[in-house]
């Protein structure tokens, strides 16, 4: 492999990683604070993509992506709030299994709601003119849109870091990750905090869905496809850790990209193998929280 091929493949992997990071960060944040593994996170991502497709179709592709991202984030956050208040809040004291099953119920429901609203056919979304085409890179060419995804992921990561580390909301979130009962003891409204965190996670999923829409076909089945990879990322990086999500996403994205080049048929297996190995060595993932007693 020559150097320019290497760089291009690396960039392709990073673009995939960027998308995975936005999705996984939300998943991980929700787990960290609420201790719920949200199987429906992929469904929220799919919802974001379909909403974005509708908005771009309405507004037109020239500027459509910006309102699409905003509308998707808000709308999906609202759905997230409904899920948290309507379902999860009633289950925090129950077994993990019941929480998992409830979110799986949501997966099934959202899949059919999306199918009902948007129909079974794939949709395609046009990117704004200035994000189309490719730029020269080390003698090869690289799609501008992939760079855009990387940029959005970096922005999302920075924003998330600021929220978590530089705001009072972030302080509460960090405290909740360590010990929610203590937080309730000092007078923080934990149940409202949980709703906000879940909405934030949902909004991230919605944004990821919206920005992926122009580069792919928007269709049913996006939910299950992304959730399994997002799980791999989160598990490798460690549940509840944003840094972990970043590292995990980079690893999975790059492994995916080079796996295709080196051993295409085994690329998928690599991810699960990596997941199993990391968990076996460090059961809570690279940066994960240990299981709370």
């Amino acid at each position: 492999m020559t150097l320019d091929e290497f760089v291009i493949q690396l960039m392709a992997g990073l673009s995939r990683a960027g998308l995975l990071f936005i999705v996984s960060a939300g998943l991980s944040l929700v787990f960290g604070a609420l201790r719920v593994i949200n199987l429906a996170h992929g469904s929220l991502y799919m919802l974001g993509a379909f909403v974005a497709a509708s908005v771009v179709t309405k507004v037109g592709s020239a500027i459509g992506l910006l309102p699409a991202v905003v509308v998707a984030a808000v709308l999906v956050a609202v759905v997230g709030v409904a899920i948290e208040i309507g379902i999860l809040r009633r289950l925090y004291r129950q077994e993990h299994l019941l929480q998992l099953l409830a979110t799986y119920g949501v997966v099934l429901v959202i899949a059919d709601v999306v199918r009902y609203i948007w129909g079974p056919t794939n949709r395609s979304v046009a990117a704004p003119e200035f994000l189309r085409g490719s730029i020269g890179l080390m003698g090869g060419s690289f799609p501008i849109y992939s760079l855009f995804i990387i940029a959005v992921a970096l922005a999302a990561g920075a924003g998330l870091w600021l929220v978590v580390n530089r705001t009072s909301l972030g302080r509460d979130i960090r405290a909740a990750i360590v010990d929610p009962e203590m937080l309730a003891g000092v007078g923080v409204n934990v149940s409202r905090l949980f709703t906000i965190v879940f909405a934030l996670g949902a909004a991230l999923a919605g944004i990821a869905g919206a920005i992926v829409a122009p580069s792919t076909a928007v269709g049913l089945g996006m939910d299950i496809e992304i959730i399994i990879e997002a799980f791999a990322v989160t598990i490798i990086g460690g549940l509840g850790s944003i840094t972990g999500a970043l590292i995990g996403a980079a690893l999975v994205g790059i492994a995916d990209s080079f796996g295709i080049l080196l051993a295409p048929r085994l690329a998928v297996a690599f991810i699960f193998l990596a997941m199993a190995i990391v968990l076996a060595i460090k059961p809570s993932g690279l940066f994960g929280l240990p299981e709370r007693a």
Partner: peptide, 21 residues
């Protein structure tokens, strides 16, 4: 070169770059 993306693949970028390579 032979590449086999999954049926329903959503991101062909890596496959395309590896073909061009």
């Amino acid at each position: 070169k032979k590449v086999y993306p999954a049926l329903g693949e959503k991101d062909f970028t890596s496959f395309i770059t590896s073909i061009l390579a």
